[in-house]
């Protein structure tokens, strides 16, 4: 019996508490953006729609910290308003895509058989086309309205959650540890809590962050090509289109919505570890 102690438990308790710098930075940025989005233009107390044709394309000043656009509207207020729109739409679509996607994925893996086949076929049908193409077409049913945009984004994004959850859950449920737990008498609730959630939770978080980034990009892309949200709504993509003709007079203006968009997407990606092996 003494011999056993000579075989060391090599991996001592080295729980990783240290997070990579990029992740911390990403989290901080996301938190900052969240505050900006919750506060909106109210943070600086300026109406994003108020025009002032006497002060168009003005450089940053005390009254307008980021300058004004071609109609004399305050850039900072408009960018904040855009953050509000993009991030709330992103959060909404993460929820409406993530919850059903995850639940259906587990259902599919748990029951298998026809349930799995039907749900799988439905997911394949959505994946038959590039996501943005589908969003574009749905947006075209009622151009300029945000709800078709939102519906389109949710409809394309749920598949990610579904496919990931289904695949991982299948592997986890086929694991000897689940069989052992079943033999030991653990019910479905405990199986989900002890086996499934710890196993797929972190992956879902990654999908959610990347999905939110996709949603933000899609909203801006569609706004930019004039088939999504439309002027005079303050939306980053719309603002880019509006300001593009004035790049020579005021190059700093067009770069502002571009920077906002890039920082948002970057922050979301970094918060889950950036481009680690997928």
């Amino acid at each position: 019996m003494q011999q056993t102690n000579t075989i060391p438990s090599t991996h001592a308790q080295t729980k990783q508490t240290k997070q990579p710098l990029a992740k911390v930075l990403g989290f901080a940025l996301v938190a900052g953006l969240a505050i900006a989005a919750i506060g909106g233009p109210g943070l600086i107390g300026v109406d994003p729609a108020k025009q002032s044709l006497l002060a168009t394309l003005s450089p940053p000043s005390l009254a307008h910290p980021l300058g004004t656009d071609h109609l004399g509207r305050d850039m900072a207020a408009r960018l904040l308003s855009g953050a509000q729109l993009s991030l709330s739409l992103a959060l909404l679509s993460v929820l409406t895509a993530g919850l059903p996607g995850t639940i259906l994925g587990v259902t599919s893996a748990w029951f298998g058989g026809w349930t799995d086949r039907i749900l799988g076929a439905f997911a394949d049908a959505v994946l038959a086309m590039p996501g943005l193409l589908l969003v574009l077409m749905l947006a075209a049913i009622a151009p300029g309205s945000w709800w078709t945009l939102y519906a389109g984004i949710s409809l394309t994004l749920w598949v990610e959650y579904f496919r990931y959850t289904r695949q991982r859950a299948r592997i986890v449920l086929a694991d000897p540890s689940v069989e052992a737990s079943r033999l030991l008498g653990l019910g479905p609730l405990l199986l989900v809590r002890r086996h499934l959630i710890p196993e797929i939770g972190p992956g879902l978080l990654t999908i959610a962050a990347f999905g939110a980034a996709t949603a933000v990009t899609a909203v801006a892309a569609l706004g930019f090509v004039n088939v999504g949200v439309r002027p005079p709504t303050a939306e980053w993509g719309v603002m880019m289109t509006e300001l593009l003709p004035y790049w020579r007079e005021a190059p700093f203006l067009i770069l502002q919505p571009v920077a906002c968009l890039v920082i948002t997407v970057l922050a979301l990606h970094l918060s889950v570890g950036g481009l680690r092996r997928s």
């Binding site: 694991d175 000897p176 540890s177 052992a180 033999l183 030991l184 086996h195 710890p198």
Partner: peptide
């Protein structure tokens, strides 16, 4: 629950993240 099993690969027989 009168029949229990032991497995070939011990780590695979436990939920691995708890």
């Amino acid at each position: 629950h009168g029949i229990q099993k032991l497995y070939q690969d011990p780590p695979a027989a436990f939920p691995d993240r708890i």
